[in-house]
């Protein structure tokens, strides 16, 4: 479904070129929950940005359903980011001026003109409320991000990522800033979404304890991906959330 082919990406810092990705290949199947682990600075987030067409590779191609998406016109890429991909960030990245409900509704706000919104606002609003209830924030609809805990903010960010019913969820260190319990709740939530709604999830993390919940674990090293040994000796997740053995490395 989502393919990265022979991806190269480097950054220039003070006239020095720092290679990050060196001919990376990845194929993520529909409904798969893939986790990518690796040391800090290994290029995990860069790969996620490239997959989500937030950034463009120096070389190589990103394909969605067999169609190249990294070279689409800006307008098409904006539309894909809005409708097809959902993002979860380590630092939640909620807009501080808006309530939890408005933050969740933001992708719909971006997608609709004022008149179109006026016609469909009830439907979107009830969907956003349902999502917030689903992530356990039904009582926090009008609260601003500063009034929420780290775990609650991340759950609001998950609800936001799900609003437009994306096909691919890209999660960048979703538990990186949370305590163990909150992190476990988030991973459980993602697992449920993956299982129940069939959302494809690509998660970047350096927390080896939570990757046990995923279908496939890949390790980023030297700018390429390698399949990681599985299972790990300890998994914090209940048995029901342990992954199905369907991991394949391309």
């Amino acid at each position: 479904m989502l393919i990265a082919e022979n991806i190269y990406k480097s950054y220039r810092r003070h006239s020095v070129t720092v290679p990050v990705l060196n001919g990376l290949n990845l194929e993520v199947k529909e409904g798969e929950f893939v986790s990518i682990v690796g040391a800090s600075g290994s290029g995990k987030s860069t790969l996620l940005h490239l997959l989500g067409i937030l950034d463009a590779p120096d070389q190589g191609r990103i394909l969605l359903d067999g169609k190249r998406i990294d070279n689409l016109p800006q307008r098409e890429r904006d539309r894909l980011r809005n409708r097809t991909f959902g993002y979860i960030f380590q630092f939640y990245h909620l807009l501080p001026e808006l309530s939890a409900l408005d933050n969740v509704l933001m992708p719909a706000y971006i997608a609709h003109s004022v008149t179109a919104w006026w016609r469909s606002r009830q439907r979107w609003r009830s969907r956003a409320v349902d999502l917030l209830k689903k992530v356990g924030l039904g009582h926090r609809l009008t609260h601003r991000p500063r009034e929420l805990s780290g775990g609650e903010m991340q759950r609001a960010a998950v609800a936001r990522a799900l609003l437009m019913q994306p096909r691919v969820l890209l999660a960048d260190e979703p538990t990186g800033n949370l305590d163990v319990q909150s992190g476990t709740e988030i991973i459980r939530l993602l697992r449920e979404l993956n299982r129940q709604e069939g959302i494809t999830i690509v998660m970047v993390t350096h927390n080896l304890e939570i990757v046990a919940a995923t279908d496939r674990v890949l390790r980023m090293s030297q700018g390429v991906l390698r399949e990681e040994v599985f299972p790990y000796p300890y998994s914090p997740l209940p048995r029901c959330l342990t992954p199905a053995p369907s991991a394949q490395l391309t």
Partner: peptide
């Protein structure tokens, strides 16, 4: 940061 979030969510 907000500008980055909006762009990630599909803002042009």
């Amino acid at each position: 940061r907000d500008i980055g979030i909006l762009k990630a969510l599909g803002a042009s």
